[in-house]
Amino acid sequence: MTEDNGALDGHGEKPSRRDFIYIAAGGATAVGGGLVLWPFVDQMNPAADTLALGSIRVDVSQLLPGSEMTVMWRGAPVFIRHRTEEEVAEARDVELSALPDEDARNDNLPEGTPAIDANRVLRSEFLIVKGNCTHLGCVPTSQETNAGGEYNAWYCPCHGSHYDKSARIRRGPAPENLPVPDYFFESETTVKIGLNDEERANSGWAVA
């Protein structure tokens, strides 16, 4: 073998035909290996039917001010709260600097949008957020059961994170506000959560 590829052992010699074959074969093996590997990695990502189940419609006509409901969306809870005027006022009366996470965490708005309450809701009376604590995913308890924590809104019992009337993190280990899913009001009383591109374009969301 070695006498054939003497050029490889030498220094400063011209690349030979054999060098080219080595590099081409090695490169093809690496690329081919990657191409074969990828399907076996990608099969673990959410499947087409899982993605297709990505949206739900919720009737909120029965939801009275001061009450809330929890719906399942994509296998996880979403909180829908019909806020009273006092709750909205309390949520809007918070300085941005008082927030540990100043990003609105709103899937309908660009990243980096300030976390003022107006950027967290489409209609001020309806607060709709994903219901898993941003720390490790527990479901926070609510003021509904008198377990709303320091801000009488939501409190995660697992590791003690307190959320406010706009479901923004205020105290505790959770790093982010409860995220707002992409949704819009299909009619006066129907919310659609999980939107396609067309719906997203006409959803009526805008940075306040």
Partner: peptide
């Protein structure tokens, strides 16, 4: 699995990949 989500940049994608969906 949410611990994995703490990793910067790639955390969320890896978590979804482990779940094979949007939750366990």
């Amino acid at each position: 699995t949410n611990l994995i989500g703490a990793l910067p940049f790639v955390g969320d994608a890896i978590r979804e990949w482990l779940w094979g969906g949007f939750s366990v």
